[in-house]
């Protein structure tokens, strides 16, 4: 077994007295893969990236990147890593090329070398046409790509990308996915964070799901889906029969069914697949409940997320924090 390229052991970080951004997180993975850190807003993704990129000291725990103890020897760690933060850290009044060359120089490259690499990287990221324009004329997506280019110029062993595709249109998003895949084919290891399940599903070889600072699950996309026992039943019933249906499902499946707040759809793991489905249909029929809709399908990461966290994965919008709704608000149960 090869040595893990990133190893995190019991990292805890508390902000102030109350906000536990990371709660004893441990994970490790092998070189040459894309590792996805999946979690909703405030899960602690950025905090973990900041610890691994030497920007933040955790309260406790150990972290190793490319064989270097990040906390004991941050200076050495910085020679091994590249970082593209959650918001593009580029200078608007410099040109794209100047931005990348500057970062190259700060990695310790000579002037000629940093020019050469800036050329390569800009071409790779398909910004060569805009390379000599000031960044203030770039679109948001171009700025993110430039930021990514800057993080590549030092040829890091491990690349940290914090939500590389947030706020980027679908086409550019696919461009970035391709670029990341190419990088990994070239031997770089990538740790990226995302709030998008499909992104983790498509891109990441392994996924860690974190929520409220805790690692709640880890594995390949398939591993995660398997935790739901193969397939799930998704159904909706008239609202006045929902409570009854839930009770029936709980009795059959042995787990608490989940209700999607917006669609009122009920999801429950079907341990024995079609057999479970048949049983559910029979039971509902006997109680003369007619579902509006019922289906058996392979779980999506969405279902995994729902099951693990008790709430659906956040999509674009987050509600204002003042509602302080917590989990209960999302689970509408009528009893």
């Amino acid at each position: 077994m090869t040595t893990p390229i990133v190893r995190v052991e019991g990292i805890t970080k508390t902000f102030g007295d109350t906000v536990k951004a990371l709660d004893s997180v441990s994970l490790e993975f092998q070189p040459g893969i894309i590792y996805g850190l999946l979690g909703p807003n405030g899960a602690g993704k950025t905090t973990l990236i900041r610890v691994l990129t030497t920007l933040l000291r955790p309260d406790s725990g150990r972290a190793e990147v490319a064989g270097v103890d990040v906390l004991a020897d941050p200076k050495a760690a910085r020679t091994k890593i590249g970082l593209a933060g959650q918001f593009a850290a580029v200078d608007d009044y410099l040109t794209g090329r100047e931005n990348v060359e500057m970062v190259g120089r700060l990695y310790g490259l000579s002037i000629a070398e940093s020019k050469q690499r800036a050329d390569d990287v800009l071409e790779r990221i398909r910004l060569q046409d805009a390379a000599d324009r000031q960044v203030k004329t770039y679109s948001g997506g171009m700025q993110r790509r430039l930021d990514l280019a800057a993080s590549l110029v030092g040829r890091p062993e491990v690349l940290f990308l914090d939500e590389p595709t947030t706020g980027i249109d679908p086409r550019s998003r696919i461009d970035i996915w391709e670029l990341i895949s190419d990088l990994v084919d070239g031997g770089t290891t990538v740790l990226l964070t995302t709030q998008y399940l499909d992104e983790a599903d498509q891109l990441a070889d392994r996924i860690a799901v974190i929520d409220e600072g805790r690692l709640i699950s880890e594995g390949t996309s398939d591993d995660l889906k398997d935790t739901l026992g193969g397939s799930v039943i998704e159904l909706s019933v008239p609202e006045d029969r929902q409570a009854e249906t839930i009770d029936a499902l709980r009795a059959i499946c042995g787990t608490e069914p989940l209700i999607h707040e917006l669609t009122n759809e009920i999801t429950v793991p079907a341990v024995e697949g079609a057999k479970t489905l048949t049983e559910v249909v029979r039971t509902l029929d006997a109680a003369s409940i007619t579902p509006n809709d019922i289906a058996l399908h392979k779980p999506s990461l969405d279902d995994v997320f729902l099951t693990l966290t008790g709430r659906p994965a956040e999509s674009e919008e987050t509600e204002e924090p003042s509602t302080n709704g917590q989990r209960g608000r999302r689970r509408r149960r009528k009893q």
């Binding site: 910085r78 970082l83 850290a89 030092g154």
Partner: peptide, 17 residues
């Protein structure tokens, strides 16, 4: 505020620079 300092701090450059 723009995160430029974060980038600098993640680079193997002289801390005082």
């Amino acid at each position: 505020a723009k995160g430029v300092i974060d980038r600098f701090r993640s680079l193997p450059m002289a801390r005082s620079a």
